[in-house]
Design a binder for these strands. Structure first.
Length: 189
DNA sequence: TACTCGATCGGA
DNA sequence: CCGATCGAGTAA
């Protein structure tokens, strides 16, 4: 049986470690027709607190950022550039605004592409990320990730945050060699 | 109410 | 490189 991801774990005040730890977990979507799809999480970014000038919570508590102040374990979904839905996992204890952007899953690299493929939009905002009843949740399927399979680098598209915060190596990617067997590739011609 | 500017992507 | 497209945040 698949083990869920624990709320208690997501409420630790360790945003960057949680972003790293999310690699290798699965994002599971149950569609309206009952079909389910589990995708390996392969790329994440950490956004941590009001002090983090790349984080939406840099402006403090507003209607949009309120969900980030919730205890870890719910989704934060917002519209980016008027076009793309961005999926984030709220992490940390209540009152500490932090989230992890799900930037890539196996079969869909890019935060806008994955939400489009999995039909994720702002209706999931503030819903539970641990409860299958929400239709979108996290599962730990026991995949072991060697430390060396993870690489870190600066977050993408946050130059507005200034050199210090833009340079934080808070973007994490899982080397493809650590992914479990992918759907069979079409035979070469 | 009038601006400005995005945690992106696809097409020139 | 540029345009799409719209909502949040800010100033007035």
């Amino acid at each position: 049986m698949p083990a869920g991801v624990e709320a208690k774990e997501l409420q630790r005040k360790k945003t960057v470690a949680l972003a790293r730890g999310l690699l290798g977990k699965h994002l599971v979507r149950r569609f309206a027709d009952g079909r389910t799809e589990a995708r390996l999480i392969v790329e994440t970014e950490a956004y941590d607190g009001e002090r983090d000038l790349a984080c939406h919570a840099r402006v403090g508590l507003t209607a949009r950022t309120a969900v980030m102040y919730e205890p870890g374990g719910c989704w934060y979904v917002y519209l980016c550039y008027g076009v793309h839905e961005m999926l984030n996992l709220v992490v940390g204890p209540a009152g500490w605004p932090a989230a992890v952007l799900i930037r890539g899953v196996a079969g869909a690299i890019g935060p806008g592409r994955l939400t489009r493929q999995l039909e994720i939009d702002r209706r999931f905002n503030a819903r539970s990320a641990l409860d299958p009843a929400s239709g979108l949740w996290l599962e730990d399927r026991g995949l072991r990730i060697p430390r060396g399979a993870i690489s870190a680098g600066p977050r993408v598209g946050v130059d507005y945050a200034g050199p210090v915060w833009a340079a934080k190596p808070w973007r994490f990617t899982l080397a493809q060699t650590a992914w479990p067997a992918l759907p069979p590739a079409p035979p070469p011609r």
